[in-house]
Design a protein around this nucleic acid. Structure first.
Length: 316
DNA sequence: GTCCGGGTTT
DNA sequence: AAACCCGGAC
């Protein structure tokens, strides 16, 4: 279809890819050649199994890649297929997640649920389009395109913060999601999502990180790059998170970790294991803990038994 | 000790 | 719009 973006594209100060289509082709070729000449050899880049890709993507969303390597291998050894994962107890999956310090335990739950969806709703066969993949629990636009790309070479351009940073610097793309979307899609060579999305994220990871390493990494886009020309390597704003130390997040994580070591634990036994200054009637006491545990129960990560008298928590 | 990363859900 | 995690780099 013809796009209705002509007015914005013609807006004079519109950011841009080179006008000449041959030049755009040169930009594409330069990146793909750079990637193919040398890149980090992550194990998930050696598979096209959609389940293995999904696991790596969900883990990568939140964790340094070094730790993902070990967790990914362990996870697949334990649950080699979507069917195997779907058959597991969720508490075991959450325990694994917590035990490998992967963070965001809800995502273990989502991954387990996604595996169940694949086996029960798709007969064990992963769907191959980004739209269908998006229906899986915990799979949003980024992960849907990543899995479609790396498993089936069937994705659209991924837009994660790496890609945004690269596009913002190289082509002065404004810090606006629809603009990133539009430029990323215009740039991706049709039908080459696997190599392309790997390449552009590799660029964001090794050459165009927060501190740019244009020359050291031999960035293939230096001759077109707006930032390289101007010296302004400003990156798009990333929302800053509230403090972690002392946060509810921190104690939720501790609770899950402790509960994965014990079958079940009364609140007054759990308390001291997550906080040295716990005392049942103190300011950080049973009422405080009860609320945290209740929220974990609302998230279906934890189960509370024995509500009358001596509440006990266990992984669900 | 301080800073850093980052997509999905509700 | 807000909540969610934790180790590693500096």
């Amino acid at each position: 279809m013809t796009d209705g973006d002509a007015s914005t594209l013609d807006a004079g100060d519109a950011p841009a890819l080179p006008d000449d289509p041959e030049e755009v082709e040169a930009v594409r070729d330069a990146l793909v050649e750079w990637y193919e000449a040398d890149h980090r050899d992550f194990p998930w880049r050696r598979t096209h199994d959609p389940y293995e890709i999904l696991v790596s993507e969900v883990m990568s969303q939140q964790t340094q890649l070094n730790r993902v390597v070990a967790a990914w291998a362990d996870f697949l050894e334990k649950w080699p297929t979507a069917a195997a994962l779907a058959a597991a107890d969720r508490s075991d999956v959450v325990s694994f997640w917590s035990g490998h310090s992967l963070g965001y335990n809800n995502r273990a739950k989502y991954l387990h649920e996604a595996a169940r969806q694949v086996t029960e709703e798709y007969g064990g066969e992963f769907p191959e389009s980004p739209d269908e993949l998006s229906e899986l629990m915990g799979v949003g636009p980024y992960t849907a395109n990543a899995v479609a790309s790396f498993a089936f070479d069937n994705g659209d351009a991924v837009v994660d913060t790496n890609v945004k940073r690269v596009l913002h610097r190289a082509f002065d793309t404004p810090d606006d999601d629809t603009a990133f979307e539009r430029v990323a899609s215009a740039l991706m060579p049709e039908g080459e999502s696997c190599v392309w999305n790997n390449a552009i994220m590799e660029l964001g990871g090794v050459a165009c990180g927060k501190t740019p390493r244009c020359d050291e990494a031999g960035c293939p886009w230096r001759k077109w790059c707006h930032a390289y020309e101007t010296g302004d390597f400003t990156a798009p704003d990333v929302p800053t998170q509230p403090e972690f130390e002392g946060s509810r997040r921190q104690f939720r994580g501790r609770i899950v970790r402790v509960l994965s070591e014990y079958d079940e634990l009364a609140l007054d036994e759990l308390g001291p294991k997550i906080r040295v200054d716990y005392s049942p009637n103190g300011s950080y006491g049973r009422a405080w803990l009860q609320e945290l545990v209740s929220e974990l129960a609302d998230d279906e990560l934890v189960e509370i038994e024995d509500w009358d008298g001596n509440p006990t928590a266990k992984l669900r």
